[in-house]
Nucleic acid binder design. Sequence first.
DNA 1: AATGAATGAGCATTCATTCAT
DNA 2: GATGAATGAATGCTCATTCAT
Lengths: 212, 212, 212, 212
Amino acid sequence: MIATDSLNTDDLRTKILDAARHLMVTDGYSSLSMRKIAKSIGYSATSIYLHFSSKDELFYALIDEGMDKLYSQLESAATACKENAAQKLDAVCRSFVDFGLSNREYYEVMFVLHPDTGSRYPADKYRKARQNIDVISDTLKLGRDEGSFFVSDVYLMANTIWAMLHGVIALLIAQRIDRGLDQQSLIRNTLHNIESGLTSTRRFVSLDSEND
Amino acid sequence: MIATDSLNTDDLRTKILDAARHLMVTDGYSSLSMRKIAKSIGYSATSIYLHFSSKDELFYALIDEGMDKLYSQLESAATACKENAAQKLDAVCRSFVDFGLSNREYYEVMFVLHPDTGSRYPADKYRKARQNIDVISDTLKLGRDEGSFFVSDVYLMANTIWAMLHGVIALLIAQRIDRGLDQQSLIRNTLHNIESGLTSTRRFVSLDSEND
Amino acid sequence: MIATDSLNTDDLRTKILDAARHLMVTDGYSSLSMRKIAKSIGYSATSIYLHFSSKDELFYALIDEGMDKLYSQLESAATACKENAAQKLDAVCRSFVDFGLSNREYYEVMFVLHPDTGSRYPADKYRKARQNIDVISDTLKLGRDEGSFFVSDVYLMANTIWAMLHGVIALLIAQRIDRGLDQQSLIRNTLHNIESGLTSTRRFVSLDSEND
Amino acid sequence: MIATDSLNTDDLRTKILDAARHLMVTDGYSSLSMRKIAKSIGYSATSIYLHFSSKDELFYALIDEGMDKLYSQLESAATACKENAAQKLDAVCRSFVDFGLSNREYYEVMFVLHPDTGSRYPADKYRKARQNIDVISDTLKLGRDEGSFFVSDVYLMANTIWAMLHGVIALLIAQRIDRGLDQQSLIRNTLHNIESGLTSTRRFVSLDSEND
DNA sequence: AATGAATGAGCATTCATTCAT
DNA sequence: GATGAATGAATGCTCATTCAT
């Protein structure tokens, strides 16, 4: 009995998230509304409030979901690649870019948009975001242990790499990149720059002297 | 007298743009409304239509304005630096990052936000966006002529650099980067990666043999 | 209990229709607004959308309602008259005129006003309009079978009669007819002309030889 | 000097009316606005108020204009036909119908619409409307003198005829007539009925006894 | 657990009109 | 005679949310 009930409950919660995600991809975030979600799953709008206390909370759940999805994708990419660290990093980075380009509106919800209300992304959810960066960090550590990457602050560099990839994804998604350019070449260029930075031995030399 | 009159008119246009930019960044594009703009400058909503025929047009004017401002900043950075191409590129990139971080409102309007209407960014405005990238392109050409940069498709690389810098700026502005990290180091890392990619001769080899 | 609930709901729908019909005739279609309707019945404008998905739909519901009312009136007139076809037609026509003059609001909505939007009157509603004309058609057929009416295309003639009656009603309702004239005489004249046309054997001869 | 000035003035007034008429036909009455009129003639909206104190007044001027136009058309039809009264009446009626069908929006302004404000059509303008009915009256008189029309109250019958024609025109214009029907046949039918009523000797017999 | 009824606030946009110049 | 600047009121419609049931 209880099990059935809770299953049904989870069912609806899942249905809502599925519908929300779907509508967001179809119509864009800003035209996502509680009413539309409700309609698309055949429930009343009121019912959504039994599972999410506000649109913001639903929004955060969507981010959560996305972070999990991204994580599992990055993880498989990392474990699937049995070669050296450079190859692994390449695989992870491509996997990230691929996630963004294949899940455009998802990506926007996770990394670009913020709810209209002033409410901030709940601090405790950052862990899920961090998880993803850790996949990069781990690969960098691997490369450092291998002796192929020259990098002192691994976590900082992981964030740097993430940021650079984000730039590419965000602009491509927003169609702000000259259409004449080949998307794949742009991505390849970015990955090349990342790798060069990691393998360059001149690292930190010119940079530490930056302010002198 | 006449001068004053026309000044007053321009004044209102400017006031509108200022208010719009501010509100857009504060509340997000979708929460920006003609009424709010009007209220915040003490005019009626109708008056805005005396200067902008629609919300979209107002939005595009905002972008335009920002593009001009950015261009003049990049140009000064480029011309101010009389050293080699690497230094010049460093100056230009830093100038770009600096623009973003010091003009968060402008930056978001220009590169992050986008209307959800189907309306496309007017083609003739692309030129303004492109001229900023050209500042980077020119510097890359300089480096290639000097023999210090190894880059085949200059325009593609300029876009790549722009995208990577954009990622850093966007995440910093949105406060999506772990606060424990030092902002300057993140930027320095990025610039290092960019430079490494330009000076590395192993271009494309390990990453993808497609173009070899 | 349940009955009461559903009654309340229907109540609101009816209230809306009543208010809308009244306002439309008072102020004209283009000056009819959802807000005005709402205000006049003490509900919020939003509530109207619980019953009608758009202003157009509300408008069409109004027409529908009127068509039904008119039909039941014409039908009774037709069945009540047991005499010959001429008498029956007279009764039906008078019933039509009477409907218009006694239900000015209904009549204008049904036959005079029209939305300025490009939206077309839904095809499936034509049936309701048509059934009213069929009451006339049937009477004409009766007269033809009796041998008292000379009419080749019954449906065409029914429409013609309807149109002529409409002219009289519309102008009387709009008070565009010289007030010095006796309304009853005007109607009597019209009916006389109609009857003469039906009983005259000189059909079409003098007017147009096109079809002879 | 003075002459020139007043010519210029009349010019603008005429331009306004022309533009208003044109826009009304193009976009429909309810989307006619002072601003649009002004724009289409290259003047400021304010300027219209130098010639018409309100939209209503402009509206009435339009009716006036239409009445004149209709009158001149009916008059030519009447004088052009040198035959008997029946032919003449036929010509006049057809001319009226033709006016309505060829000047749809014009016709609506003149005979169907009324301004949104409660303001009534100024009484002194009725004379222009009456003029048109007189053309019909005159023809009826002619027929009576000829001995071909049997009609006691000429003015009443003129109004009756006008009303019947109006019904046909109004419904055709509003596209409320079954499209399957031939427009010309409908009109012919109407004219036949009118003529039959005039030539029928049984006139008034059955009608006067109506109430007995 | 689920909902139907209801609403206040908000949206972009258009309008007729005024007024100082 | 003509206008630019400005506005208050209005429009249809959508939204997130509440509440009694």
